[in-house]
Design a protein around this nucleic acid. Structure first.
Length: 583
RNA sequence: UGUCCAAUGGUGUAAUGGUAGCACAUCUGACUCUGGAUCAGCCAGUCUAGGUUCGAGUCCUGGUUGGACAACCA
């Protein structure tokens, strides 16, 4: 109890700012916003921002708007608008209202005229290159534009004609008139408007001038009375400009606060790079289960809870950070362990024949659906003379600590019987094609009446009743911890993990899975159905499944198993780090 | 050689001038009809030099290191 009490006092820096403002009466309730640009799909870094913006408002009884920052028509598209809304909903958040920066174009235009009238903005005829050259560098001051001192009347006239489409793209811009020698580059007469004869996803061809981020964002916040405009660190240096526009316009004072963006090792978090992976076919779309996108994690089998818990756990601060991928997987396992029903599935099957089990006989055995949730009940699993077990669960020459099946060692078939391997059949190459066992009928259900114990329990599927499936095994998309750091002449693409996807065919599932739903609805969004395949990890249905052809994705494996000197398919293909460790 | 931001175990994050705590990772052990889960435990930290103070991770100054800013992107 005291623990929780003291934990509640441990606020992050944003909560402190909010609580202080609340107690000082700066605002009655907080208002936040999540402002994505609809130019790509949301990724786990956005999830952090979403959890912050929506979470903070929720915690303090405030509201959160969804606002599309759509001020650059050449990059934006309604496809992204729809996907973004779906992802936010799926994560379990609701916006108070939905807005578009483009809704404010008219107001923004009027305010620009106000600044011109105050002598704080001017139309610049310089070319892109001239503007760039005259901006100076971080250590040298810039040079004023020759057009900097045009009259208010001329500026007003020119700006209106810009709006009316009289000029070509790039021929003129509207600039704030601040200080070309300012040590903060953002203040060297920042561009407010550029001419873009482009079709906008919402306003069509109504406008041919579009506001820049710095001129649009703060004013949009102000219009919506956003009390806390929370953004990432790279905008820190923009804050003085954010404040400047609001102050000069004398409008409702929103304030900006910055936090450090999320980085996770073994992955990239830039929209540009994610787009490249999709466009150039390194992955199969934005929702490829290897992608760090929200829709990718959804298809991978992640739950909204697991992502929210992850975002809670990583905390928020102003220092750069790189989170271990393992923390994400921990959050997933933690949740799935509680909610995922268990099933038996043999991914790399080898045939087992129980020689003393009557031919042609089969029976039903009872298995627990989820030991963590009694309400999930039990199911019946068919058992017969011929079974499949994991190839990895049998070893001819086993070391002492190998508890699974080997000649003469009794093991338990989960929920079924104790069996003992007697002999094997092999093909010409020496591969095991069949294992012959004997079983003890007295151990039905998995316990011996005489109280004898076995060290190992393995999963199995009745050969006669097995359902075939395809299973996609994923490993990390990148082979290196910091994929962005590529040596001279290389790019992040050179850091891709060539073994990030392995497709297994002919996997054998217990028949209960034949009737599984392929998808379910979660927070109003279509999501996969998730299972734990006993001893193998967490898996979920993939939408590529069709009638008679089930496809499962591996969401994550369990924490690394102890695999003494075994060099099986599993180790080789999916646990390169284990190979090193057991070598 | 400018302006701004930041430095706490391997990785994150608390401690708000008063015992440096928590989580993940790693390792050990216990238990188990999943080598899962669970439980217990180990290892490990305040960038540096001064200053203020009875007392500094916290305040001040210098240094060091890392990051952001020179798109008509956001």
């Amino acid at each position: 109890m005291q623990e929780t009490a003291s934990n509640e006092k441990q606020l992050n820096f944003l909560e402190e700012i909010i609580e202080q403002g609340l107690s000082e009466g700066k605002y009655e309730a907080i208002q936040t916003r999540f402002p994505p640009e609809p130019n790509g799909y949301l990724h786990i870094g956005h999830a952090k921002s979403i959890c912050l913006n929506f979470g903070l408002a929720k915690k303090y009884g405030g509201k959160t708007n969804l606002r599309f920052d759509d001020t650059n028509p050449v990059k934006e598209d309604t496809e992204y608008v729809d996907a973004i809304q779906e992802d936010i909903k799926w994560l379990g958040f609701e916006w108070a209202s939905i807005h578009y920066a483009s809704d404010y174009f008219e107001q923004l235009y009027k305010w620009a005229c106000v600044l011109i009238e105050k002598g704080l903005a001017y139309v610049d005829d310089q070319s892109l290159d001239e503007i760039r050259a005259n901006r100076g560098t971080v250590t040298e001051p810039g040079k004023p534009s020759p057009w900097r001192d045009r009259s208010v009347e001329e500026n007003l006239d020119l700006f209106e004609r810009m709006k009316n489409g009289e000029f070509e793209d790039g021929s003129k811009v509207l600039r704030a008139k601040i200080d070309m020698a300012h040590p903060n580059m953002q203040f060297r007469d920042p561009i407010m408007y550029r001419i873009l004869h482009a079709n906008h996803h919402r306003t069509g061809t109504k406008w041919c001038i579009y506001p820049m981020y710095d001129y649009a964002h703060g004013q949009s916040d102000s219009i919506e009375h956003i009390t806390h405009s929370i953004c990432t660190l790279e905008f820190d240096i923009h804050r003085p400009l954010y404040d400047w526009f609001i102050e000069q316009l004398g409008i409702w004072p929103s304030h900006q606060y910055e936090f450090a963006r999320l980085n996770i090792n073994y992955t990239v978090m830039s929209k540009r790079k994610l787009l490249q992976l999709v466009k150039e076919g390194y992955v199969n779309g934005w929702d490829d289960p290897r992608m760090p996108t929200i829709c990718g994690f959804r298809r991978r089998g992640y739950t909204p809870e697991s992502i929210r818990n992850f975002c809670e756990r990583i905390g928020v601060a102003k220092r750069d950070n790189v989170i271990d991928y393992s923390l994400l997987e921990f959050s997933l396992r933690e949740h799935l362990n509680k909610v995922a029903q268990r099933r038996m599935a043999v991914l790399d099957p080898v045939k087992v024949v129980i020689d003393n089990y009557p031919e042609g006989q089969s029976e039903m055995l009872t298995a627990v659906n989820n030991p963590e949730c009694e309400a999930d009940g039990t199911r019946e699993v068919p058992f017969g003379r011929e079974l499949y077990i994991e190839r990895e669960d049998f070893m001819e020459d086993a070391p002492k600590k190998y508890f699974r099946m080997t000649i003469g060692q009794e093991v338990r078939l989960r929920y079924a019987y104790f069996v003992t391997a007697q002999s094997v059949e092999k093909d010409a190459e020496g591969n095991i094609t069949c294992i012959h066992c004997t079983y003890d009928p007295a151990t039905r259900g998995g316990d011996a009446p005489d109280g004898r114990k076995v060290k190992g329990t393995i999963h199995w599927v009745s050969a006669q009743h097995a359902v075939d499936a395809e299973v996609r095994m994923f490993d990390r998309l990148f082979a290196t911890e910091a994929p962005d750091e590529a040596p001279e002449g290389k790019t992040f693409l050179d850091n891709l993990n060539p073994n990030s996807l392995t497709v297994l065919q002919g996997c054998k599932l217990e028949p209960a899975l034949a009737s599984t739903a392929i998808s379910t609805e979660e927070n109003g969004v279509k999501a996969p159905v998730r299972y734990q395949f006993e001893r193998m990890g967490y898996f979920c249905t993939d939408p590529d499944s069709s009638e008679g052809h089930l496809v499962f994705n591996r969401s994550c494996r369990f924490t690394l198993l102890f695999l003494p000197c075994s060099f099986s398919w599993q180790v080789k293909a999916f646990c390169p780090q284990v190979c090193l460790w057991t070598d």
